[in-house]
Design a protein around this nucleic acid. Structure first.
Length: 108
DNA sequence: GGCGTGACTTGAA
DNA sequence: ATTCAAGCCACGC
């Protein structure tokens, strides 16, 4: 019996993202065993504003800030990432593959 | 209660 | 190599 919902797991993993690192929706989904349900991760993030989830550290699989439109400001997400040392250019994370944080690999 | 949408991903043509 | 299509499941109207 899992008392934790899929959404809660997403929030939990998202909070585990280290400083200055980023991950993708699919990576989280895959870690939760729902690799094809990446959309649900995104939808879960829709409620992230009610949680203390650093959704700005979550981008799509190519490192593009797809959800930046959902933040308060238009460049708030980019601002936060740059504040952590993550360079963002044209809504895309620079050196994304180097900054990529895979829960399935880091958390094992 | 059905249909469409959505912060995505992967695979096939 | 790029482009198209399908899958996943919850929420809103």
């Amino acid at each position: 019996m899992e008392e934790v919902s899929f959404f809660d797991k997403v929030y939990d993993v998202a909070r585990l993202i280290p400083y200055g690192r980023v991950t993708s929706y699919g990576a989280i989904a895959k870690y939760l065993g729902a690799a094809r349900s990446a959309r649900m991760v995104g939808w879960a993030m829709n409620n992230s504003h009610t949680k203390d989830v650093p959704a700005h550290r979550v981008v799509n699989r190519v490192g593009v800030l797809t959800g930046k439109h959902h933040f308060e400001g238009t460049n708030l997400m980019q601002q936060l990432l740059e504040n952590e040392g993550v360079k963002v250019e044209d809504n895309q994370v620079v050196d994304f593959k180097n900054l990529f944080w895979d829960p399935a690999q880091e958390l094992r």
